[in-house]
Every structure is written in structure tokens, then in C-alpha cells.
């Protein structure tokens, strides 16, 4: 794996509001080089806003975003290393309803110093995309393919993808994860993928970042996070006894059968194993729901 010359992308105390609505609240985040990060959060949690602020495409009310210690705002050296491949929508830029794919990609080639046109052409062929088509004429899946193409061909040291899997069928999604891992194996560049499709992508993310209500809830290695969560189920009395001393995130009860989603150290789990309860692991998606469900979750 080749290493790239990027540094740490840091956000400190970032606050951003749209009018009275506080979207990002005193947010701190570090993106270290050479990893694949997954950014997950509910709709309206502020993911796209965060990504826009990290890449200086959106303003912040207070706080700072730096790359290699330098602020990213209006800093060409930093901007050259960042690629933010947005989720394409028919109404993406004001008044661009007739923008062609070709125009979009040609602009990318003009602005990103590392743009790999051969790679872009290969992907165009593989995705069977017609560059002459207008973006608003593409299907949701095809728009995702353009997002992916742009991100990969940019060869930017820090590449951000916003909802690259939206609208793709399962075969194309698998292909996307493959392409991402292949590129990562070859270049070792930093990827930050924001997605709704959590469980499929979980094995691809080395680290996961959970954004909830404008703050970073978790930012740590995926497997480390998952290892902390379990379901404990059985007779309600046993379950209650075992769960004492563990952080209970949610409970579900059917008669005397009770299931609790808990977070705790392995040591405390030992005691649970001795009792007559079932202990099951939680996958990333279930961990996410337990952490961000806010009362409307089920185990």
C-alpha cells in the first residue's frame, strides 16, 4: 500500500445553524490519513452539512476546520487534497437542470490535480453511463454511479462520498464496495463514506463515525465499537439482575421475556454468561439503532 502525503483533517468546536435551527453543535472530529471511515447518522443529523463544512464548501458559525494544521477555508493547498463527491439530485446546483454528465466530469478533470481520466473512462464503460445525458435525466442508481466515479477518479488524498450506494441494486452495491477496497488497496488514500446502508458497508469501514443531533456520538474502530454491545434476553428477573452495572440502551418486553440491549466491558459480561440468559452480539446497524433510535427502537 502506498502512503499519500495527506495529514489530519480536524474539526474543533464547529457550530453551524441555519437560522434558528442548530445543525452542528460544538463538534470535534479527527480524520486520520489512510483509513476508510464510515459516517452514519439519521436523516437530518447534519451529515451533508458536516461534510460541506469540512471541505470549506459551506460556512461555519464558529470553530475551525484544519488540514495539516492549516485552515481549509480558501486554502488551495488543502482544497487540492479534498474531494467531496456529492449525492447527485436533479436539483443539485441552482439552475442546473440541464447540466450534462460530461460537463460535470470535465469540470472535475479541470479542478482536481490528481484526476485520472483513464480510470474515469473505464468506470464510465463499466457503469454503462452515457456522458451526453443530462443529470436530471439519470435514474437514482445512475446518479450514484456518477458520485462513485467522481470520487474514485479524483484520486484525491482525502475523498468523501455522500450516499454513494443510494439507488443502487445489491449487485452494484457489492461492486462498489469491491471498487472502493481495490482503490484503497492500491492507493491507501483516506475515504470517508456517508451512508444509510449500514450493515452491508460495516465490514468495509475501518472506523465508524456516528453523528447524532449535531454532535459526534462515536468515532472509533468499527469492531471495537461493536464488541461493546450485546443483547441479553431471558426471564425478566434474571435479565434485570445481570444488567445491573451495565449501561442499558433499550428494553423490549413480551410477558416475562425481556430483552435488553446493553453496553459494557467484557469483564462484566463474564458474570452474565454464568446466569441463565442468552447473550447475543449486535451488528453495527443494530448498535446504531440502539444509540440513535431515541425511544422508537426495537431490538
Amino acid at each position: 500500500m502506498t502512503t499519500t502525503m495527506d495529514g489530519v483533517l480536524s474539526a474543533r468546536g464547529v457550530c453551524k445553524s441555519y437560522g434558528a435551527l442548530e445543525v452542528l453543535k460544538d463538534l470535534d472530529l479527527d480524520i486520520l490519513p489512510g483509513k476508510i471511515y464510515g459516517l452514519i447518522g439519521r436523516n437530518g443529523a447534519g451529515k451533508t452539512t458536516l461534510l460541506g463544512v469540512l471541505t470549506a464548501q459551506n460556512t461555519l458559525d464558529s470553530g475551525s476546520v484544519t488540514l495539516d494544521g492549516e485552515p481549509v477555508w480558501e486554502n488551495q493547498r488543502a482544497l487540492d487534497k479534498l474531494c467531496f463527491s456529492r449525492e447527485l439530485q436533479a436539483s443539485l446546483f441552482t439552475g442546473q437542470n440541464t447540466l450534462k454528465v460530461r460537463h460535470y466530469l470535465r469540470s472535475a478533470a479541470a479542478f482536481w490535480p490528481g484526476w485520472d481520466q483513464a480510470y474515469a473512462d473505464r468506470l464510465l464503460r463499466e457503469f454503462r453511463l452515457d456522458p451526453k445525458k443530462k443529470i436530471c435525466q439519470l435514474s437514482k442508481g445512475q446518479m450514484s454511479m456518477v458520485t462513485i466515479l467522481l470520487a474514485l477518479a479524483s484520486r484525491a488524498p482525502i475523498t468523501i462520498l455522500d450516499e454513494p450506494a443510494a439507488g443502487l441494486d445489491v449487485v452494484m452495491r457489492e461492486r462498489f464496495y469491491q471498487l472502493l477496497l481495490e482503490d484503497y488497496a492500491e492507493t491507501g488514500r483516506t475515504f470517508l463514506v456517508s451512508t444509510h446502508i449500514i450493515e452491508e458497508a460495516a465490514s468495509v469501514f475501518e472506523d465508524v463515525i456516528i453523528l447524532d443531533e449535531g454532535k459526534i456520538l462515536e468515532s472509533c474502530p468499527t469492531e471495537e465499537l461493536i464488541a461493546q454491545f450485546h443483547y441479553i434476553s431471558g426471564h425478566e428477573d434474571e435479565v434485570d439482575r445481570v444488567c445491573r452495572g451495565l449501561q442499558v440502551l433499550s428494553t423490549h418486553q413480551m410477558g416475562r421475556h425481556k430483552t435488553c440491549a446493553v453496553r459494557g466491558e467484557m469483564v462484566k459480561l463474564r458474570d452474565a454468561e454464568a446466569a441463565d440468559v442468552d447473550i447475543a452480539p449486535m451488528n453495527l446497524q443494530k448498535v446504531f439503532v440502539a444509540l440513535c433510535g431515541h425511544g422508537d427502537e426495537q431490538p
Binding site: 471541505t55 487540492d80 467531496f84 441552482t94 439552475g95 469540470s107
Partner: peptide, 21 residues
């Protein structure tokens, strides 16, 4: 020229161009 303050501004901006440039 209306496009110069709509998509012909936002598109380059989304690709890492500086505002003063």
C-alpha cells in the same frame, strides 16, 4: 450570465475552487 452566480459558481466551488479565484 445569470449562470455565473448559480451553477457556474456552485459547480467549481463544489470541486475545490477558491472563492476569490
Amino acid at each position: 450570465s445569470t449562470t455565473l452566480s448559480t451553477y457556474n459558481l456552485e459547480l467549481p466551488l463544489s470541486m475545490g475552487a477558491r472563492r476569490r479565484d
